[in-house]
Write a protein that binds this DNA or RNA. Structure first.
Lengths: 215, 215
DNA sequence: GCCTTGCCGATTGGATCCAATATGAGGTAA
DNA sequence: TTACCTCATATTGGATCCAATCGGCAAGGC
């Protein structure tokens, strides 16, 4: 689901746009004109149309008949409910993943978390944080669950960015503490603890976000 | 999301195929050739391609590059996890919907449940049951949540059908009892009870399904 | 005998052109 | 002035044609 050297033009266009949207170069609300993208990419409009449909399936753009595509905007309430959905689904992904995670994956988790703890920059934090959590879910046997979780991350990406831009040192420290506890639980194969810490992690973020984006 | 007289050709094709898949006329594993659908519909292949992408977004078909579209098959384990996801998400949809449901909607719930209780046929049961539950969620303010829930219903539709085909009178009676309790809780605006009954309803079905489809 | 390799039909992916629809500017009437 | 109507233009939706890719089958080599 992450970029990858794709063969068809529509997949390449999709990867390109996906990266732009997740990086915030295309902000929520931005309209995406087919012809612009086609020109920029040296392709016809048709693969662009298909790429937009793919991204729509991932929740990264929304399409309206005869009106085209735009990057979706979430209001505060919708954002909060998406976090409640994450709060319920991601622990399920975690618990089904933990018993199947390889020692290599656990070692990588430590490594990523070390880099997060050292990292000052915002962009890298968001990328690493996503890598971190997705890696904890990576052994989950259900593609449906993994795909759904990724959709939620996609649709909240912009707000995570806005949120972390005003991150205090204290907030960063909290995240690090939660991550450390989570990795420890995973290493001990303690499914209950893992679920507990992850739920708290998401829940705390939801509440802080609601405070920041309340309508 | 349900059929509706749509303006564009791709939407009409999508509605058509969606109905066929949900009705079981196109069984899981069936391959869908673009040209066949185009011919049957008197349109070109292009709107068919877009329709297939729409359906892929809803989880009703799966696409593979250069290999075309087919109706997805779930194995027993995947099916079970989808039910666990439903078990966690649908109560959320319900609790956010209950306070906003109109008296008219509640009256319709009674009506639908009466018809379910009287209904002998299988096809109508599946349709009515879906209508029933979606109506309980209909006031949920989050489109993301509603869309996600509908995706899950789509992807499990075939197995619900296979399941109900071997439904005993006892099983039907259980469903009716659960529905009655659910409607009662909704009518009393008792969010906790509603959540409790719905969770049990889905959970019980998951376990019975797992027994039937275990690998 | 079995695996590899190259060919051919079937099917999907892409480009170009045309039709349908929405958006915005400008003008006219109340 | 303001509301509404008309029309031009920009943008998306659809049809047709061409190119690329996959699957099966047969012939040849190990």
């Amino acid at each position: 689901m992450t970029a990858a050297a794709s063969s068809t033009a529509s997949e390449r266009v999709a990867s390109h746009l996906r990266a732009q949207i997740l990086a915030g170069e295309l902000a929520p609300g931005t309209r995406i004109r087919q012809e612009d993208v086609a020109a920029e990419f040296g392709a016809s409009r048709l693969p662009v149309r298909e790429a937009l449909r793919m991204l729509a399936a991932e929740g990264l753009v929304e399409l309206e008949t005869n009106k085209g595509a735009r990057v979706p905007e979430l209001d505060g309430e919708e954002l909060s409910i998406v976090y409640e959905m994450r709060e319920r689904l991601e622990p399920l992904a975690l618990t089904s993943s933990i018993p199947l995670l390889t020692p290599l994956a656990v070692a990588q988790l430590h490594e990523i978390q070390d880099r997060i703890a050292r990292e000052d920059g915002l962009i890298d934090f968001l990328t690493l944080d996503r890598q971190f959590h997705m890696l904890t879910y990576s052994a989950c046997p259900s593609v449906t669950l993994l795909t759904t979780v990724e959709r939620f991350w996609n649709s909240t990406q912009h707000y995570r960015r806005a949120f972390m831009q005003v991150a205090t040192p204290h907030r960063r420290a909290m995240v690090n503490a939660e991550h450390e506890l989570l990795v420890d639980a995973i290493e001990r194969q303690d499914v209950e603890d893992g679920e507990r810490y992850l739920t708290g992690h998401i829940r705390r973020t939801r509440i802080e976000l609601a405070e920041l984006f309340r309508v």
